[in-house]
Design a protein around this nucleic acid. Structure first.
Lengths: 213, 213
DNA sequence: AGGTGAGTGTCTACGCTGTCCACATCCACC
DNA sequence: GGTGGATGTGGACAGCGTAGACACTCACCT
C-alpha cells in the first residue's frame, strides 16, 4: 500500500499533513499552521488539503487531537515514576501531582503543542466523522478525574470534598500554564518557573483538601 | 478644539479608533478589530490609522489598555460593597474575593473585553512612547497584590505564606476565566458558572492560607 | 484487455487581510 | 499670507483561506 516516492497521488496525504503540522506547530504554534505553508511543506498544492479536511479549522483540529494525546502521555510518564511500595494515600496524591505538574511542564516544554492541545472548537457544529476535540473525552481530563477519584478512595478527600474538584485543579494548572507560556510570566527563568509550578500545584491541592469549607 | 462634524481632518482619530474598538471588541473580541473594519466604522480610510499607530498590534494594544482599566474598575466596584464595620480579617478576605470574583465575572460578562484585557505583547520590543500593556503595572494585578498584603496585615496569612501567593491566585482565576469563556465550560449555564466561580475562588484562598506547607 | 467511476491533486481566480508609497489637504505659526 | 508639518486619501502589493473546473491515477468489473 506504500506508494513509490513521488507519483501523482501522494499516498497518505492526510497523515502527512498531520505529521507536518506537528513539526510546524512545535516551533510556531497554531499560527504556523497555514493551509499554504502546511501543504507547501508536504510538496503539494494548497487545495489538495481540502480533499481530506473540510477547512483549515478541521485540519488544525486533527493535529490538535494528536497534541492532546501527547499531553496525556507525558502525564502517564510522570506517573510511572511513582514508587509502588508507598502509602496508598501518598500514591494517590502523587498521581494527582503527576497530572498537574505534567500539564504545566508540557506547556512550558512544548508551548506550541500545548496551544494545540487546549484548543476548543469554535462553534457548536454538528457531529463530525473524524474524532475531534470535543467528540471525545479529552484524555488529559480523564486522567485528572481518575486521580481525584483515587484521592477519595484513598481517604485523602471526603466524598463531600470531591464535587467540582476537577474544575478547581484544572483552572489552576491551566491558568498557570497560560501565564507561563503566553502571559506575563513567560519571560521568567525555567528554574523559577519550575519552582512556581510545584508551589501552585501543591497550593490548589491543599485548597481542595482543606478542612470543612 | 472640537472640530466641525466632518472635515478633512477628523479631530481626534486616535481616540475615536480606540472608542470604536471597544464597541467592536465587546461583541466580536480581538478578531473584530481589523484595521479596515475599525477605520470603516469611524468613516476613514484604513491607512489613516497608520498616522496614529505603528501597526495593527499597536492599535489593538491601545484598546487593550482601556479594557484592562475596566477590569480593574469592576474589581473596585465589588470592593465598595464590603461592609466597613466588619472584622478586619473578614474585610481583608472580602477584598481578595472581590478581586478574584471580579476577574472571573468580568470575563464571563464581557468576554470580548476580557480577551483584550489579558493580552500580552508578542515580542520583547523596546520601550514605546504610548503606555502599553507591559510598560505599566497592570492595575488589576496591583489590586491583587494589595489584597494579599492586606491579608498579611490582618493576620490571616503569615509572612511565610505570602511569597508567590499572587501567582497561585492569579493562575486559578485566570484559568477558570479561560475555561469558562473559551474552554470546555463555556457552554454551561450562567448560574452554574457563578457557583463554580465562587467555589474555585474560595478553594484557592483556602489553599494559600492552608496550615504550614 | 479495456473501459469506467471514484478518488485525489492541480490550476485559476476571488475576496479578504495588513501594510507601503506617493499624493492631497488642512491647520498653525512666522 | 505664505510655508511646513501633521493628517487623511488612493492605489497597489503580497499573503491568506477557499471555491470551481479540470487532469490524472488507480481499483475494479466485465
Amino acid at each position: 500500500m506504500v506508494r513509490a516516492a513521488r507519483s501523482y497521488h501522494h499516498g497518505d496525504l492526510r497523515a502527512a499533513l498531520v505529521e507536518a503540522g506537528l513539526k510546524l506547530a512545535r516551533t510556531g504554534g497554531i499560527g504556523a499552521l497555514g493551509v499554504r505553508e502546511l501543504t507547501r511543506s508536504v510538496g503539494v498544492t494548497p487545495n489538495a488539503a481540502y480533499r481530506h479536511f473540510a477547512d483549515r479549522e478541521a485540519l488544525v483540529l486533527a493535529i490538535a487531537v494528536e497534541a492532546q494525546d501527547r499531553l496525556a502521555q507525558t502525564m502517564l510518564d510522570r506517573m510511572k515514576a511513582i514508587r509502588a511500595d508507598a502509602d496508598p494515600a501518598d500514591r494517590a496524591l502523587a498521581r494527582l501531582r503527576a497530572v498537574g505538574e505534567g500539564y504545566v511542564h508540557f506547556a512550558m516544554a512544548e508551548p506550541g503543542w500545548f496551544e494545540l492541545a487546549i484548543l476548543t472548537r469554535d462553534e457548536p457544529g454538528d457531529d463530525s466523522p473524524q474524532p475531534t476535540i470535543e467528540s471525545r473525552v479529552a484524555p488529559p481530563y480523564q486522567l485528572l478525574v481518575d486521580a481525584l477519584d483515587g484521592l477519595v478512595e484513598a481517604g485523602v478527600l471526603t466524598p463531600a470534598q470531591r464535587p467540582n474538584a476537577e474544575v478547581a485543579c484544572w483552572s489552576t494548572v491551566h491558568g498557570f500554564a497560560d501565564l507561563a507560556t503566553r502571559g506575563p510570566l513567560r519571560a521568567q527563568d525555567p528554574p523559577i518557573l519550575d519552582a512556581l509550578a510545584t508551589y501552585v500545584v501543591d497550593t490548589i491541592i491543599a485548597g481542595v483538601a482543606a478542612p470543612p469549607r
